[in-house]
Simulated scan of single mutants.
Amino acid sequence: MSAAVPGAIASHHYFDRDFDRMAVKLLPSEYYVTAVDTVMTTVLGSCVAACLIDRDAGVAGMNHFMLPEDGEPGTRGQAESMRYGAYAMDVLIRELLRAGARRDRLQAKVFGGAAVLANMTTLNIGDRNADFVLRYLETERITVAAQDLRGPHARRVCLLPHSGKAVVRKLRAQVDVQSVQREEGELLRKLAAVNKSKGSCLS
């Protein structure tokens, strides 16, 4: 099997007082797989996080992707490709199997796909991400045990690997919302740059 994707494995570890245990925070384009009961957490706007769990093996993983599919597969580095759902899902499943999970035991919990900026609603990025992850999991015959997708609110998602429990909190505090809006604005700028390089524009 291929090696783990360098530069894409979440590395921000800290002690989470809410759960009284160590945690790892995933940023956009990152993933994490573990057999240790470390809380995995991320904050989502239009992005989607897929959590895959094999409770029998005690292994779980999470990713955080920004866009559904790469229009130019094979032209980007591995770490850059992690922003795209198709690649991020393939990597997550591969690394779970490497860690001892079995594909037929995997269950999914998926979150995100919100529209937190007006332009995101126009571009339907959140909806496209949500549609993609559900379609991907159906194609791969992985059961979706829980989902909280779309809507106007950003989310903070926490996954407890051993129990498979996911805790979701809608973000309404101004400081949290502003942080997500900055991230969404950066995504829009990247999309605009990509489309400009192709001689087209966002509409």
Results as ranks from 00 to 15, higher is better:
D127G: 12
N195T: 11
F15Q: 08
S81F: 02
C201F: 12
A8D: 07
S2L: 13
L117A: 08
A60K: 01
R141V: 01
V133K: 01
G58S: 06
A130P: 00
G71S: 11
I142H: 07
Q107P: 08
R17N: 13
S81H: 11
S2V: 10
R98P: 07
N124H: 13
D131W: 00
Y87V: 10
Y14C: 03
I53Q: 13
D20E: 15
S179D: 12
H12R: 12
S11V: 00
D90Q: 15
V39C: 11
S11A: 13
V175E: 14
V39L: 13
E30F: 02
D54T: 04
E138N: 11
G112Q: 03
A88N: 07
S11H: 10
A130M: 07
T122V: 15
H12W: 09
V116F: 06
L187H: 10
A145G: 01
E95Q: 15
S81C: 00
P161I: 10
A4V: 12
L44F: 00
A50S: 09
D148H: 14
L117Q: 12
I93T: 07
L188H: 11
C158Q: 09
A10P: 02
A192C: 06
G77L: 10
R150F: 07
I125H: 04
A88M: 01
V5S: 03
N63D: 14
S29W: 06
V144D: 05
R156I: 07
F111P: 02
A114R: 05
T121P: 08
A23C: 03
M120F: 12
M82D: 08
P73N: 03
N124A: 14
A146K: 11
G77T: 14
A114Y: 03
D54E: 04
T139F: 02
A86M: 04
A23I: 07
V175K: 12
R94V: 03
G58F: 08
N63I: 03
V116W: 01
E72T: 13
A3T: 12
Y84T: 07
A166S: 15
S197N: 09
V33K: 03
S179N: 09
L117I: 13
D148G: 02
V36Q: 14
V59E: 00
V133D: 00
L26R: 02
D131C: 02
A193T: 13
K170A: 10
V144H: 04
K25Y: 06
R105W: 00
R182C: 01
E95T: 03
L202T: 04
K165L: 12
D104T: 06
R76W: 11
E184G: 04
C158H: 15
T75I: 00
D56F: 03
I125D: 03
Y84H: 11
